[in-house]
């Protein structure tokens, strides 16, 4: 299988590391060669958290600038910042709910208008899928399920050879019972929003 390179970018606490790990599990369950990479440590204290999932004929665990096939941004400012990973053929999936960094609160810079950011991104890449993932997660009664919404949108985008059922099997086997129903609902709603 031709290599597929996916980049996940989020902010500490949004759960993008879990999303990329679950995607890796789903790929493994379909016998697709996969490698997932994560950044741990200092970067996690409220900073930017990046992970990557690579599938198919590739062994390198990271994605260079300009080489992402799919870019999944959990926060609109970070999607814009991370755009260097993309090229004209990239599919970008982004959450539109802003999480302003504290530098904005103390007056070191302004948070860019979300609509303007989305327009900017739309002009540069093949396809932009934008959704308010936080709102969807709140609506299913599980504010922490943003990562499930984003995984749903990814599967819904039909950019990778992983089926919704494969993904749901992995989610089911790695979620605590109390959150399972809302996680699966968040995943479905994410898928439907594409």
């Amino acid at each position: 299988m031709k290599a597929k390179r996916l980049v996940f970018i989020g902010v500490g606490g949004q759960g993008n590391l879990l999303a990329s790990r679950l995607l890796g599990e789903a790929a493994l369950s379909r016998d697709i060669p996969t490698v997932v990479s994560e950044i741990h440590g200092m970067a996690q204290r409220g900073g930017i958290v990046e992970s990557a999932v690579l599938m198919g004929d590739v062994t390198s665990p990271i994605v260079s600038n300009g080489e992402a096939d799919v870019f999944i941004g959990f926060e609109p400012l970070e999607t814009l910042r991370g755009l260097t990973k993309c090229n004209a053929h990239t599919t970008v999936i982004t959450n539109t709910h802003p999480l302003p960094p504290f530098t904005v609160a103390i007056g070191q810079g302004a948070y860019p208008q979300v609509e303007e950011s989305l327009n900017l991104i739309r002009q540069k890449v093949d396809r932009l899928i934008a959704l308010d993932g936080n709102q969807i997660a709140e609506a299913v009664g599980n504010p922490l399920a943003l990562n499930m919404v984003m995984l749903g949108a990814l599967i819904g985008s039909d950019t990778i050879p992983i089926q919704a059922e494969d993904m749901k099997d992995v989610i089911s086997s790695s979620t605590k019972k109390a959150f399972l129903e809302s996680n699966l609902e968040a995943f479905d709603k994410g898928m439907q929003s594409v």
Binding site: A43, R45, I48, N65, E78, T103, G109, A110, E116
Partner: peptide, 22 residues
Amino acid sequence: SPPEMVDTSDSPQLPGRPPNLC
């Protein structure tokens, strides 16, 4: 010829997000 990275020269100045004490 490597895949061409998107041109981000027209992006606005973005506020930083350094790691912070919780």
